[in-house]
Each structure stands twice: as C-alpha cells, then as structure tokens.
Nucleic acid binder design. Structure first.
Lengths: 154, 154
DNA sequence: ATAGAGCATGCCCTATACGTAATGATTATT
DNA sequence: AATAATCATTACGTATAGGGCATGCTCTAT
C-alpha cells in the first residue's frame, strides 16, 4: 500500500556520499544527508532526529522510505538545537518554526520571537535569582558543617 | 488481615485538635497532626506527603490506619522541603536522612552532607554559567530582532 | 547468494514528582 | 439512621525528551 517510487538511485547517491562524508561536499548548498550522517554532524542520535520529525519539527523529503535531508533541513535542525540550548521546549520551538513557515515575510514571527525571547529572559532572570539564593544558603550550610566538624574533631 | 488496634481515641484526638488548629496547640512539643493538617501548614498537598512516605522519606506512626505526625515528623518534612527548594532530588534527600537516622552521632553524615552540598554548589555554579550564557545569547537575539523590526517598519 | 550496513516503523521503558480518580472504611454531625 | 468529611489504598495518568529493542526491507560488497 506504500507509494513506492524510484527508491534506488537516491539511496545509492546517499550511500556514495556517505563514503566521502568528510570531503568538501560538492561546493553547492545542495548537500544531502541521511539521518545518521546528520546526527553525527549535529551531535545527537538518529533517534532524536526522528523524534523531532514525529513531533512535527522537521519534515525531510524521502527517497522511498528513507529520509533525505537538505542543507535547509540541516539549518532547521541547528535552529532547533539552539532553541533547546536556550531552554525552550520542543513545543515552543515548533510553534515558532511553524510561524516561520507560514509567514516567511518575517514580521509576525519576529514579534513572536521577540515576545518569546523576552519571556524566556524573564524566566531565566528569575531562575538566576533563585539560584543565587540557593548558592547562598548552601554556602551557609557548608560553613556550618565545616564548623561543626572542626569543633567535634578538636 | 490488618493489625487493627485501638483506632478510635487517636482519631478523635486528631479530629478534635483539627477544630482548634490555629490555637496555641498545647504548648508542648507533643503536637500531633493529620496528613491534611500538615499539608496545609507546609503548603503541599496530602498526596505529596503520602508520596514521600511511599518513597521512604517519612514514617509517621499510625492510629489504626490513619497517619499521625509528631512535631519531629513535621520538622523532618520541613527539612525535606528545604532540600527540594535547594534543588536536591528526593532520592538525595532520602539518602541523607537515612544516614542521619542510622548515625545520630553526627559525624559520617556531616561529612556526607558537606560532600553533597559541595557537589551541589559546583553543579549550581555550572548552571549559573550556562544560564548567563543563555541570557547573553538571548539578549543578542532580542537586539537583533528589535533592529530587524525597526528597519522593516521604517 | 548471502552477509552486513544502514534505514524504517512500532512499541515499550526511563526518570521525576506528584495529580486524579475510584472505592472503601471510619468518624463526626444532624 | 443518613449524610458529610476525612482518611486509606490502589492504580492509572501526565509532561519531557528521548533510549533501546525487535522486526523487516533495501542496497552494497564479497
């Protein structure tokens, strides 16, 4: 029941490219990657990338059933990973990317991004405050523990 | 099959105390509490307290099947909540409390605590660094977004 | 032709800290 | 006695971000 088109050639190309993965990669922006290639390059597992797809964050083309990623897909994934590093949830990242897809004129989503970023900044500032407080408390506990040990040892 | 002892009196005492929960509470350290009383006082749900028991963090006495908490139990719970605020996992908190229970001479566990605290401090310092970096990046994104919006609006 | 890569799908598993019923027993109140 | 309020136990659900395994297909190399 699967619409199976010309699977062979693309897979072949993919495999061949795989052989010289570390070469200059054809000087064009038309580079293609398999999941695991991309995974290696981005420092995540293939499972992760497929997971993102499942969550609607990426949508690679297929050669038959095999996922084929373009450099655009790659860039998108890097965006996703950056978002993650910055502490956004996959859901938030998806929402932003969706907006970006719908409206490439870059207006609505810039505002959206700005809003999200500011929200995130506020959250982080709160977190930082809490963290500082924890650190202070812990320093206190540390000092007290040290004192208690000193006294009982003497 | 449950060893059911004199359930009545204790429950009665508990409930009666419930009526004047906000009173001076009998000036002794012998105050007793029910789960939900304690929950209210500590700002958590009864479910939470029972969950902690399930995880072996507290072990209240029982009046029949009903949990009865002493002020010692209460203090222990406050310790637990403090640990949580400081970012320790329930598991870590349990390990520490267990140590404290076994060896109340306060030596091994003091060292243990000190070690755990220092570890936690190190972790928090790392987190803080990461957080600062995220904030810097976000500030950058914010600036860029603002600029882009300004330019396209003008 | 047959093994070995690499890929795909599907499904269950993990950790953390509880929330949310469902169901039953006991106690207090009316 | 009936009803409301608490309490208990059991057990499934939630959110997040994947990990890991089984099974099966395709393509390449020997």
């Amino acid at each position: 029941m699967t619409t199976r088109t010309t699977t062979g050639p693309a897979m072949a190309a993919l495999h061949e490219r795989h052989q010289r993965e570390d070469e200059a990669a054809g000087q064009q922006g038309d580079a293609l990657y398999s999941v695991s290639q991309l995974a290696r390059q981005l420092g995540v597992t293939a499972r992760t990338i497929r997971f993102y797809e499942d969550k609607g964050l990426v949508n690679p083309s297929r050669a038959g059933t095999t996922r084929v990623y373009t450099s655009r897909d790659r860039a998108r994934l890097m965006l996703i990973l950056r978002g993650k590093r910055l502490g956004f949830s996959l859901r938030e990242i998806k929402d932003y990317l969706d907006l970006y897809d719908v409206d490439p004129t870059q207006h609505a989503q810039l505002r959206q991004l700005l809003a999200a970023v500011r929200k995130r900044i506020a959250k982080l500032q709160e977190q930082r405050a809490a963290l500082e407080q924890s650190l202070a408390e812990l320093a206190d506990i540390e000092r007290q523990s040290e004192n208690a040990l000193k006294l009982s040892t003497k």
